[in-house]
């Protein structure tokens, strides 16, 4: 299991811990300067930011506590369809409907997590149970035609005459969401929860012996991450104005989210953002290959994971760390201290 970035540990000054988030947010905020004129390109950019949000939510669940949730799409769909139906059919205010639908996603994720934890299901088994939930949800969307519009999809009207219907404004809403999620993730890493998560990931039995309530932390992570995914899905439904089962299907969401997180770096702060960004750029490029795009797509996945099996962010951080040690070693502080008798490598 790849190690998390050490900067996130409790004890590093807050400025240093949160600086990467501010920098990422500021850089991303410049994107509309270049792409703001084109509705199509803004759609692509917003898609990338949306997936960054999904992937951070998934990272809270899988990266932090090792629960393989193969239902990111379904949880987002619960948020999206839930919020759309509540606001359009039942006249509930849009913001309230999004809150309620995200809560529903959080409860669903929490329940799945609780079942997995209380039956102590392993990684693969958790994966299959959540996959079953995912496929069932997709079938339910297709079957409950009168409520969801079935295969044809559902037009979501509530957001269209607010600023969510504009070209650039929704981008900043999603960016705000991603920055908030990143802040939540970092705060988690720095809190006692983060310590518990790390302990639990390094060695579950040792963590439990040291008094970490493994089960409770897993369920907390499952609930929180699912709520985050649900909220992102709800927001997308209103900004896009149209959703269909494909929008939230396993193949269209979960596969991408896993590839993005694994490529960016599991359990790292910026991994989801890097993964989503690289993936979005690559996908634009690959789409131009038309008929053999699937082949290129598969080959790119192979090359990426063969060259960077630990993910981009952990690899870069390890490299920077080595560079920094080398730099320090090159300039010994005068006068040279006597060599230590025994060296204890800090972990």
């Amino acid at each position: 299991m790849p190690r998390a970035a050490t900067v996130g540990r409790a004890g590093t000054p807050a400025v240093r811990a949160y600086a990467p988030i501010v920098v990422t947010g500021a850089l991303a905020a410049l994107l509309p300067l270049r792409y703001g004129d084109s509705r199509a390109m803004m759609g692509v950019v917003i898609g990338g930011v949306l997936f960054a949000a999904y992937t951070i939510g998934f990272n809270v669940i899988f990266g932090s506590t090792g629960q393989l949730f193969l239902c990111t799409g379904a949880l987002a769909g619960l948020g999206g369809y839930g919020s759309a139906i509540l606001s359009d059919r039942h006249g509930i205010p849009m913001v309230l409907s999004m809150v309620l639908a995200s809560l529903a996603a959080a409860v669903a994720g929490g329940l799945l997590s609780w079942v997995a934890v209380s039956r102590s299901l392993g990684v693969i088994f958790t994966g299959i149970v959540t996959l079953a939930f995912s496929l069932s949800f997709e079938n339910l969307l297709l079957g409950k035609r009168d409520l969801t519009g079935g295969e044809t999809g559902l037009v979501v009207a509530a957001g269209s005459d607010t600023f969510l219907g504009e070209q650039v404004a929704p981008f900043y809403v999603f960016l705000g969401l991603v920055v908030a999620y990143l802040a939540v993730y970092r705060a988690l890493q720095r809190s006692h929860l983060g310590w518990a998560f790390r302990a639990l990931r390094e060695d579950e039995i040792a963590a439990e012996l040291a008094g970490v309530d493994v089960k409770r932390y897993r369920v907390v992570a499952g609930t929180l991450g699912s709520g985050m995914i649900g909220l992102a899905g709800a927001l997308y439904a209103h900004s896009e104005g149209f959703i269909s089962p494909r929008t939230f299907s396993f193949g269209e969401v979960d596969v991408l989210v896993i590839v993005m997180l694994a490529f960016g770096g599991i359990g790292s702060l910026l991994g989801p953002v890097v993964g989503a960004a690289v993936y979005t750029v690559l996908e634009e490029w690959i789409d131009s290959f038309d008929e053999y795009r699937l082949i290129i797509y598969g080959s790119v996945i192979l090359v990426l994971f063969l060259t960077l099996p630990r993910g981009v962010v952990p690899t870069v951080l390890a490299f920077v760390g080595r560079l920094r040690r080398w730099w320090r070693a090159r300039r010994p502080r005068a006068p040279a201290a006597p060599p230590p008798i025994a060296t204890i490598t800090p972990r």
């Binding site: 699937l294 797509y297 598969g298």
Partner: peptide, 28 residues
């Protein structure tokens, strides 16, 4: 060359890539 969860994850991702390639070739 890997063990445990690392192996499962890398194997799964590489085979996912292979799945796309085979699908791509056949559909094309």
């Amino acid at each position: 060359r890997r063990r445990g969860e690392d192996r499962v994850l890398l194997g799964l991702l590489l085979m996912l890539g292979v799945a796309f390639i085979i699908d791509g070739v056949l559909v094309w």
